[in-house]
């Protein structure tokens, strides 16, 4: 009985989490334009979606912004993490505390503050402002992921490389970089995720020339909503689900040979 109650509870929470997503998916196949009347099965909304230029254009914008911002954030953040790691304690904690401000602050305050910055510098709102804004909230996540890897690294490895005749750059590319690579990759992936998902900060820093998918969805939900939005969310859901499954399967595969290798070494 206790076990049943527990499972039922878990079921209810997941029902709560997934009911709205289910509704979106069901409605994406609904021939009726009304959200709550079933008018038969159709693929129409999907084909209409693929011919909607605004949506396709904003999808491209989202991907371009995410990619450019994440690459720059990763470079900037990795270099920053190495620099911060080698600083004295007081300086390090000062820099880190300021770095985390964009994470701790409410998104709307970060968005508004960046908007004021761009207005003050009389910049045109568009791709550039969007990318700059996205970099500034992505870099902290890169630093956050790279710093622990630097701490875990054996300091003497670099000294050994230098003693054996590497110059600083070689020591970095051949020793440090491979050691911290997992953190760099996680930081990059987190940057992409946050950038694609962001609405609030993009909302305050976008221009009419560059609209991300979130902004387009927002303007769609404000007007009379087209069921194309449902089709779009279903596609995004399927895409995310596929990526997660692939990542998880790859993870599981990667984890099992590792164990084997360790066994051999021992």
């Amino acid at each position: 009985m206790k076990k049943f109650a527990k499972n039922f509870y878990i079921f209810l929470v997941f029902l709560f989490l997934y009911a709205p997503i289910g509704v979106l998916i069901v409605n994406s196949f609904n021939a009726s334009k009304s959200r709550s009347v079933w008018g038969g099965f159709t693929f129409d909304w999907y084909s209409k979606l693929l011919h909607d230029e605004t949506i396709l254009k904003s999808l491209v914008t989202t991907l371009v912004v995410a990619l450019v911002a994440s690459v720059i954030s990763t470079l900037l953040g990795t270099a920053a993490a190495i620099g911060i790691f080698n600083m004295k304690k007081n300086m390090r904690s000062l820099i880190l505390n300021i770095s985390y401000l964009p994470i701790i602050n409410p998104e709307i305050v970060t968005g508004v503050s960046l908007m004021l910055l761009f207005v003050s510098f009389k910049m045109d709102f568009g791709y550039i402002t969007l990318i700059l804004a996205h970099i500034s909230f992505c870099v902290p996540y890169v630093i956050l992921n790279v710093l622990p890897k630097l701490r875990q690294m054996d300091k003497h490895l670099i000294e050994a490389a230098l003693d054996l005749g590497c110059n600083r750059w070689q020591a970095f590319t051949k020793v440090t970089l491979p050691e911290i690579m997992p953190g760099v990759i996680t930081g990059f992936l987190m940057s992409v995720t946050y950038s694609v998902d962001d609405f609030v900060i993009s909302y305050f820093t976008h221009g009419s020339k560059a609209q991300t998918l979130s902004i387009t969805i927002y303007s769609m939900t404000r007007r009379k909503v087209s069921p194309k939005v449902n089709a779009l969310s279903t596609l995004i859901f399927v895409a995310v689900l596929t990526i997660l499954i692939i990542v998880n399967v790859a993870d599981a595969k990667r984890n099992s040979p590792k164990k084997y290798k360790k066994g051999v070494k021992a």
Partner: peptide
């Protein structure tokens, strides 16, 4: 290696500190 953080510190001043001061 400390200087590796240089570009980021400049970035942080422009895109974190200045915007908050502007508020």
């Amino acid at each position: 290696s400390r200087w590796a953080a240089g570009p980021y510190i400049l970035w942080m001043i422009i895109f974190v500190i200045v915007p908050l001061v502007l508020i």
